[in-house]
């Protein structure tokens, strides 16, 4: 088995889970992972050391571009909302669902920061390396993401009124 094949065998499932958290759709996640791994295969000989940062970077960037393209296509003249729609998530669905829904309102980059930091357990420095930006930029994105989750009506109810 080649080095690349070994890497795919070992890492595919984990990458697929990460991709799902970014895309929120299993078919799209599989497509995203295959695209990223295909690109990694093309550049395999140029990758020094651990391929993970490179592969995660492709996944994050590819997802961001898909996200931008879908956004352009579906809502060409509007901006993504800055906050939730005001529904009382705790009444309609459970706390977890409220949080999951709120995560879905994050921008592609903010979602990538959250997933890499809280799911992949990467340090902010590692996240910055994967996303190709400064640690300060990651902190800023993460801060905005968390603020957005916290100001969400559903989350505020969950973390404030009920506790």
């Amino acid at each position: 088995m080649t080095e690349f094949a070994e890497y795919v065998a070992q890492r595919h499932e984990r990458l697929r889970r990460t991709a799902y958290l970014l895309t929120r759709d299993w078919a799209t996640a599989e497509d995203l992972v295959q695209t990223a791994l295909a690109r990694a295969w093309l550049a395999w000989r140029r990758i020094d050391g651990d391929p993970d940062p490179y592969v995660y970077r492709i996944i994050a960037n590819t997802h961001a571009s898909w996200w931008r393209r879908r956004w352009r296509g579906e809502v060409p003249t509007e901006e993504m909302p800055d906050s939730g729609d005001g529904r009382d998530f705790t009444r309609e669905i459970g706390d977890r669902d409220a949080l999951w829904t709120a995560i879905g309102t994050l921008s592609g980059r903010q979602r990538a920061v959250v997933v890499l930091h809280y799911f992949e357990e990467m340090t902010l420095t590692q996240v910055a390396g994967v996303l190709g930006c400064s640690v300060g930029a990651v902190k800023s994105q993460l801060g905005r993401a968390l603020a957005r989750l916290r100001v969400d009506q559903g989350i505020r109810t969950m973390t404030g009124a009920e506790r």
Binding site: H12, T18, Y20, W26, W100, V114, Y118, F119, L149, M158
Partner: peptide
Amino acid sequence: TEHDLRELLAERSTGASGGGARL
């Protein structure tokens, strides 16, 4: 919230079997 976030992400990402890598 961070705790919820970690648990949620771990939980939601185990939803479907990928059927193995398609090399």
